[in-house]
Design a binder for these strands. Structure first.
Length: 337
DNA sequence: CAAGGAAA
DNA sequence: TTTCCTTGG
């Protein structure tokens, strides 16, 4: 998922204090997907209300947003629009992987292999339209702004940062850097425990910051060249060149300057100009408004507790955090924005 | 993932 | 208090 540039990029771990007072453009789909993948029981079943509707995404979004606001970190959620045509193949591949995982989940469950079942269940997670609608409705009730991207959410989020409407993009993927976001925050969560891909092992994970300019200067390349590195290793819009990982890709780009130079050495890269354009001239919009509102306390309770069986006590304490985050009343936010 | 009670 | 572990919906 996303471009595999992780091993190349310098990161700095940060504490929540360093993020205080900052606005962050959150890749909403990235957050929602993770909530759906991870907020599950042992057998892999997600949280559901009494009518069987999945609620994992609501739980994750509500409590995390409440925590961020209490920490005076201000999320602006950015939702994906229409994916570029070049992404179609990736999306299709992901669908196949999910369907296979769903079958394996069922099989593992039948055979009593609970740990594996849970892992497959996570892989089978899908962000359906209702999940997105639920998320937008909850954000409106919480008074938290969201922006609808015309195309890629990460591109629009990067655009917000470039325009000064946010300090950083929050996502687990590195794509926003290729889209030109000066700053990326990963692991933007409050309790820093996360499951490792492999087993049922948890490690402490702190938020980490990647700065584009610093990364480029340490790698000794330009953003255009970083995009070329990404294209060599593979993105959501192309497969990448077989046998070339991040390290070799960087070497090749440094040595030959660009994909054109690399092709002269005999390495074929499929139709890269369209992919470059996606990253370097992304489809983004200036037609958005970022408006913070007061939380609608009764609306939140009605939605989460009334419709989806959340505990009144827990939701109430989440609402307290929302209110504390904005200085108890309506004062502090107006100061920042 | 996050909350909150149990255990240390 | 802090950490561990189970439940949440």
């Amino acid at each position: 998922m996303g471009v595999q540039l992780g091993p190349l990029l310098p990161r700095t771990e940060v504490g929540l204090e360093e993020l205080r007072g900052k606005r962050v453009a959150v890749d909403a789909l990235n957050f929602l997907y993770q909530f759906l993948a991870i907020i599950r029981q042992r057998d892999g079943e997600p949280l559901r209300d009494s009518r069987g509707r999945i609620t994992s995404h609501l739980s994750g979004l509500f409590y995390r947003t409440a925590n961020l606001l209490e920490a005076e970190i201000y999320p602006i959620y950015v939702f994906d629009g229409k994916p570029p045509e070049l992404k179609r193949r990736t999306l299709e591949e992901r669908r196949v992987v999910r369907e296979r995982a769903a079958e394996e989940w069922e099989r593992a469950l039948r055979e009593g292999r609970l740990e594996e079942a849970r892992r497959y269940a996570a892989q089978a997670a899908t962000v359906e339209e209702r999940v997105v609608e639920d998320a937008k409705r909850l954000l409106r009730l919480m008074g938290v702004p969201f922006v609808q991207a015309p195309a890629e959410g990460e591109a629009q989020a990067a655009h917000l940062v470039r325009r000064g409407d946010a300090w950083a993009v929050a996502s687990q993927d590195f794509d926003s850097l290729l889209f030109g976001s000066p700053v990326l925050v990963r692991n933007l969560a409050l309790t820093g425990r996360r499951k490792l891909p492999g087993k049922d092992v948890y490690v402490e994970v702190r938020p980490e910051v990647v700065e584009l300019e610093r990364a480029l200067s340490e790698l000794g390349i330009t953003r255009e060249q970083l995009v070329d590195v990404g294209i060599l290793v593979g993105t959501d819009f192309n497969e990448g060149v077989k046998g070339i990982g991040p390290k070799r890709a960087l070497e090749l780009v440094r040595k030959h300057g660009s994909l054109e130079g690399i092709e002269r050495e005999g390495v074929r890269v499929e139709d890269f100009e369209g992919i470059r354009r996606i990253f370097l001239e992304p489809e983004v919009s200036d037609e958005y408004r970022i408006e913070w509102g007061q939380p609608e306390v009764e609306g939140i309770k009605g939605f989460l507790c009334g419709e989806h069986d959340f505990s009144e006590d827990r939701v109430q304490s989440g609402i307290q955090k929302l209110l504390r985050g904005r200085g108890g009343r309506q004062s502090s936010l107006e100061r920042w924005f």
